[in-house]
Design a protein around this nucleic acid. Sequence first.
DNA 1: ATAAAAATTTAGGCAAGCCTAAATTTTTAG
DNA 2: CTAAAAATTTAGGCTTGCCTAAATTTTTAT
Lengths: 217, 217
Amino acid sequence: MQSFTEENYLKTIYNLASKQQGEVSTNALAEMTATKAASVTDMLRKLADKQLIHYKKYQGVRLTEEGERLALQIIRRHRLWEVFLVQKLGFGWDEVHEMAEELEHIRSEELVVRLDTFLGHPQFDPHGDPIPTPTGQMPEMGYRKLSDAVAGEAVCLRAVMEHSTEFLQHLNHSGLTLGSIVTVSEINAFDKSVLVQIGNDRTVFVSHEVAKNLLVS
Amino acid sequence: MQSFTEENYLKTIYNLASKQQGEVSTNALAEMTATKAASVTDMLRKLADKQLIHYKKYQGVRLTEEGERLALQIIRRHRLWEVFLVQKLGFGWDEVHEMAEELEHIRSEELVVRLDTFLGHPQFDPHGDPIPTPTGQMPEMGYRKLSDAVAGEAVCLRAVMEHSTEFLQHLNHSGLTLGSIVTVSEINAFDKSVLVQIGNDRTVFVSHEVAKNLLVS
DNA sequence: ATAAAAATTTAGGCAAGCCTAAATTTTTAG
DNA sequence: CTAAAAATTTAGGCTTGCCTAAATTTTTAT
């Protein structure tokens, strides 16, 4: 059985690894867990002892098969709770991250099974992220970033890669919601910002920084 | 802000105090929290420093007004989650205690408000215990113990004072459910066990140990 | 009333997770 | 290629909440 803290490290390693090539660095983990690098090193030694990560000093870290299984279990719980908070309790998608961070650690296999059934076996969380299967498979969606679309393309907004309240409220404000069809009408050659038309309605400005965090298909 | 552990002590002090006269003892707390008396003493000093309890060495402990307010907040959360687990997820009343022990510590005022609304503002948890109001009042029910009923009396089963899986499964087995009307047909003078008829159906044997933990009106 | 028993507290320690400062290794820039 | 910069690890410490053993206080039984 892992501690609350160990679970958070596993989840964070998975999330960082899925956004990059190769091993996850100590510093990246320190930033994500809001701790210092020295603390991360302590924990990595511990997780390596438990065979949950592959770790060589100074060389970064990668989950073992068992570590990945556990990480996906935690991510599954996190995403199911987010669906609950939004669909059943009526929270906004910008309000649920912190609560789900706590709920994901509730220790009961049966609870997850029943919650999943209660929610109707959802495939995606409110941010468009796929929910890992009970057996620990992460569905591969093959989305692209909006920032990689070319002028004239019409794409469907599928997911967001950033879950902060500020970012999501900014999207609310722009009228960008998951499932909308947006057409890229213009790409600024200098700052790579884009103008997109939402459906047949208004056209909004999207900075490159934001477009990089929007997944489309 | 209190730690997970501090919250558990406050809740436990409240629960013990409500079942007895006067101050709560160190030993009683040690038993309930599954720790040793020395550990309890440490925590009592800490809670006293925070003005959450009245504490004089060797003299037991009692919640301050603020301590009671916090305790009732935690108990409210615990009982609302129990309702959720039973009514929405379909767990048995004998399965939910452990999970609610964890869920009660989720830190979000808004979550409690929305959960309460989602559940339809329930008055009682699955064990028949009243749910404290949002403002921190514990409804006074004035129930008696079944063990205090006299022969011939017909009473309604309202609540259980023991939440262990074993106890509740024993009740399931006996067919004793909350809301049933039971008639005391016989009281054994030697061991104080009682025979009760459930509605107009079967008559079951109830030991004094069990009858002491059943609240009726 | 007092000695034994029970309850409680104090003293000193341990593990988990965090920290800072210093040492080490790796990476980068010139 | 090498020196400086950056990243990482080690060393030593802190806090929380727990423990055991010993000391103290309260309660109980004679």
